[in-house]
Design a binder for these strands. Structure first.
Lengths: 338, 338
DNA sequence: TCGTCTTGAGACACCGTTGTCAAAAATTAC
DNA sequence: GTAATTTTTGACAACGGTGTCTCAAGACGA
């Protein structure tokens, strides 16, 4: 057991106890060549004092922190939570810690968080950008600090990034709904300034165009605007929806609730298909059909890309696109499936 | 705009550019008394160089890092994600960052993460312990680093902690089910070594005892063991359940799925009430009645407790117990409600 | 005009660790 | 046994800031 002094022991304390120089203790710590007997003495001293190297000091000297930053808009979204989980795992495996920050979807907060993280000498950064209209934030990153974006993609792609096949996802989803004979399919989305939203809308439009049907897109600036009244006016009265394609998780939740308040049941009265899977989507009645994103894999790949970068190697930015998958349950009209 | 040199600029660079001493630049940075004109020169130099103070160096000198650690078993649980969110917000407001780690519910991982975080000189720690049988981990914390536990509570409570009224929560829930005339209520839980599990079971037992009915508790060591077959054998065949009280989120999900595989619908065929609310619990059919935990508040209070500690002040450990609330929807048998 | 007080600014050491380099010790060769 | 080598070790200076102390300069009253 360790003997606690009033202050945490330093390497100097260890060295003194082991009766060697500071540097020798440091060498033992770093597995450099040191005589067997001194190694033993030093290790014993470390054990006895309960010595823990000060990573701050180590990082200061070595100009690195063995920490990466991660900025997400909102942890409550299960997609994000899963991605964060995966990143954290990969980081741990590489001996890094993750400093987590959430931007609340606000670019200014995002930028200020980046500045704060950079001040903490993070070695790398993983961001799910809050706004993809803006130019990349690489102007905030000092030389040598690399960043990877995921989920969203920035305009001037000078960064590694990982996204999913958003466009194909909604295209296939829309085509599927069309296959059920549905025509007045309304796409509901929020935050049209986001890359994902634009891409998903594009996929939807492509499928509608291919079918020769006029697309009906209803977007709100912020999810908060998606109320039952809005749903009634915009989606049903104005667009005469006979099916709904929800473009993200929050929209799905709000649509589901809104629909019920209007006395309709999603999937029964109004066929519905949503982007992003979540726990219990399969337990809704009818079970919700979705476009599933590989959230954990997204996080894992983003982290892997970052660590490859940190180890040196690649130069030009790389973009990874992971496949979405259409999970057909019941709400899209596929009642036949169990 | 900043001029990027190959290396990030240091305070010395600033001082040289402003033609003042290093210390004066430092004074400007810390708003100490400095002549007006030098302040201007230094600030201009900082602006020009895009100077950002090195928090590692600052922290090394000041023996603090303005970072707190947070360890949770699993981010995928919405309860946890919300708590983390709240902690992060409070930390940010106090100028701190959060280093997030997940233990995966493994005490050894938890302890090793704590050691790692301590090495990074965190100023405080917030933990949702992975095992509440074990003694507190305060042996791992150096002098001056305080910790707060939340959700779970450790045996030797030498730490601040925030929990909810687990016992009252299940007691009221059970009483409610009993009020519907249900008798063979089976409590389903996992990880019986956890404080929350024990407390929730205790609340359930108390209510059953008060009603003079034999309690029926079915616990599994790990959630993975909760399969449809187990549900059929243990819960229905053996205990002849006519109602289910699920003691946590994962059990709820698995019970819901298991029930369906057995051809039953939770809430219709088998009344059900669950601990922990989640998005879309209200959209299940029938809507799931739950005991709701104030997750964000839990996180916020935990962080607040920690920062109070950091500012000095209290000495003896404090335990905060936040109220759960019974949210009656339909699955408990309250069909009458909307 | 001199001494005292106030204010501002620089020199220096230090936080805990590691890179550099040269000295000391151990090993080998002759 | 001595010289040439190899290894092991320690002194010293960083890394990027801040606390302490001292000293210089300006303000003020007598």
């Amino acid at each position: 057991m360790a003997i606690w002094k009033s202050q945490a022991p330093t390497l100097l304390d260890v060295a003194r106890l082991a009766d060697v120089s500071l540097k020798t203790a440091s060498r033992v710590l770093n597995n450099a060549r040191v005589n067997e007997d001194k190694v033993i003495r030093v290790k014993a001293a470390m054990e006895r004092l309960g010595y823990r190297p000060n990573e701050l000091a180590r990082g200061l000297k070595a100009q690195r922190s063995a920490a990466i930053g991660m900025i997400v808009p909102n942890l409550s979204d299960p997609f994000t939570a899963n991605a964060v989980n995966a990143v954290q795992e990969v980081a741990r495996a590489n001996g890094f810690v993750v400093i987590l920050a959430s931007s609340g979807g606000d670019v200014d907060v995002e930028r200020s968080e980046i500045v704060s993280l950079v001040g903490r000498q993070i070695d790398g950064l993983i961001v799910a950008p809050a706004d993809s209209r803006k130019d990349s934030f690489s102007d905030l990153l000092p030389n040598g600090v690399h960043a990877v974006t995921f989920d969203q993609q920035l305009r001037n792609a000078d960064l590694d990034s990982v996204t999913v096949t958003n466009r194909r996802g909604t295209r296939e989803a829309t085509a599927h709904l069309l296959g059920h004979g549905l025509k007045r399919i309304v796409a509901i989305g929020a935050r049209p300034h986001l890359y994902t939203c634009r891409e998903r809308v594009a996929g939807y439009r492509a499928a509608m165009k291919a079918a020769g049907i006029e697309p009906r897109v209803c977007l709100v600036d912020h999810e908060g605007m998606l109320t039952p009244a809005w749903l009634k006016d915009q989606v049903f009265d104005l667009q005469q929806a006979d099916a709904i394609l929800s473009l993200n998780w929050v929209c799905t939740i709000l649509s589901l609730r809104g629909l019920r308040e209007l006395g309709k049941t999603a999937g029964r009265d109004v066929p519905m298909l949503s982007f992003d899977d979540f726990d219990l989507a399969d337990m809704l009645t009818p079970a919700l059909s979705v476009v599933k994103q590989p959230a954990e894999m997204l996080g894992r790949e983003a982290a892997t890309l970052l660590f490859e970068r940190l180890k040196g190697g690649r130069v030009e930015p790389r973009t990874l696109v992971l496949p979405t998958s259409l999970i057909l349950r019941e709400s899209c009209g596929c009642r036949s499936l169990s």
